[in-house]
């Protein structure tokens, strides 16, 4: 007995070695390419470190100087980062509201046994397709179609809907709408598929007994589908929000990095990109990243809790 336990013990130890060997590449890569850069980002946020023309300034320790500079009003009297965060959220909400409403409706329609929709496979394949399109190329396409001399304007003028061509990229509402439209198109198919899986995971007998009780489809939706879909719906919402906070490609390419008009479509990551690509302002960029990290960190914790809960079941 003692002998066999010892052998068994030795056996697990020798196999444990393999576990470490197999997971080492992951961790080496994680430490080198993610963890060290992350720590360096935080470290940078406490230093003045940028290029002024060809002249390198710093690095000089400035404590919370970068954070103070970010969170105090600039020449125009507004706090830039708050403005950009507001833009980012506005852009996200404009796209996410139709995205979730339509995805929810589609998911219910597709999964309804009563409606028994044919041709679902093809429809799903088409509505998911925009999710795989290169965001920068899609934005460039929208720009080329909606530009002042583009085909949409030509059509609108030729058909007499408007008198002269309208520059979509100089008006806040139209720029934001175009960005929201792009985000909506790219994501509603994905959300539909995720929500469909959620609905199909609900115990079918609940729907059947509701039908026997004489509930109509609207009652079934609000009394059964929606409450039981809540975990997946909120998971999808929060991951969408985390993605929304990182919005970059679409507004960057559509407005050529300028956030037109008047920086009303500049997002937080576009600000980060400006600090990094121009003056190599690692200090200020570091502080932006840390603030971003805190916000997404809070949201991620919520998602992590949900996943961990799901994982235990």
């Amino acid at each position: 007995m003692a002998e066999s336990r010892r052998i068994k013990h030795r056996k697990t130890v020798s196999y444990a070695k393999w576990a470490y060997i197999f997971i080492i590449p992951f961790f080496v890569s994680y430490i080198l390419f993610t963890l060290v850069p992350q720590l360096l980002t935080i470290y940078n946020s406490f230093f003045e470190n940028y290029m002024n023309g060809l002249q390198q300034i710093g690095p000089n320790f400035v404590g919370l100087g970068n954070y103070k500079a970010l969170l105090s009003p600039g020449q125009s009297g507004t706090i830039d980062i708050l403005k950009y965060f507001g833009n980012t959220m506005a852009l996200w909400i404009l796209g996410a509201v139709p995205q979730f409403l339509i995805a929810l409706m589609l998911a219910v329609i597709f999964t309804s046994a009563r409606l028994n929709i044919k041709g679902q496979g093809l429809a799903k394949a088409i509505i998911y397709m925009p999710n795989l399109i290169m965001a920068s190329a899609f934005s460039m396409l929208i720009f080329a179609l909606f530009s002042k001399v583009g085909p949409i304007n030509k059509y609108l003028v030729a058909s007499g809907i408007i008198e002269q061509s309208f520059d979509f990229l100089t008006v806040k509402v139209s720029v934001r709408s175009l960005i929201a439209l792009l985000n909506f198109l790219m994501w509603f198919g994905n959300t539909t598929i995720v929500l469909m899986a959620g609905i199909m995971g609900i115990d079918q007998s609940l729907f059947e007994s509701a039908e026997i009780d004489g509930s109509n489809s609207i009652q079934v939706f609000f009394d059964i589908t929606l409450p039981l879909l809540m975990p997946i719906l909120s998971y999808a919402l929060i991951t969408s929000l985390i993605g929304g906070i990182q919005m970059f490609d679409v507004p960057q390419v559509l407005t050529n990095g300028r956030g037109t008009p008047n920086l009303t479509s500049t997002t937080v990551i576009m600000m980060l990109n400006n600090f990094l690509s121009g003056s190599k302002n690692y200090g200020r960029a570091g502080a932006v990243s840390v603030l971003l990290f805190i916000i997404t960190g809070i949201l991620s914790t919520i998602v992590y809790r949900m996943l961990a809960k799901q994982y235990k079941d």
Partner: peptide
């Protein structure tokens, strides 16, 4: 085993842009 698994789950949602500054600098 458990600790490592929990750790990987925890780092899952950290956005790539957070490490970008240090990555570019290096």
């Amino acid at each position: 085993k458990r600790a490592i698994f929990t750790f990987i789950m925890a780092i899952m949602m950290i956005p790539a842009q957070v490490s970008a500054v240090g990555f570019i600098q290096l």
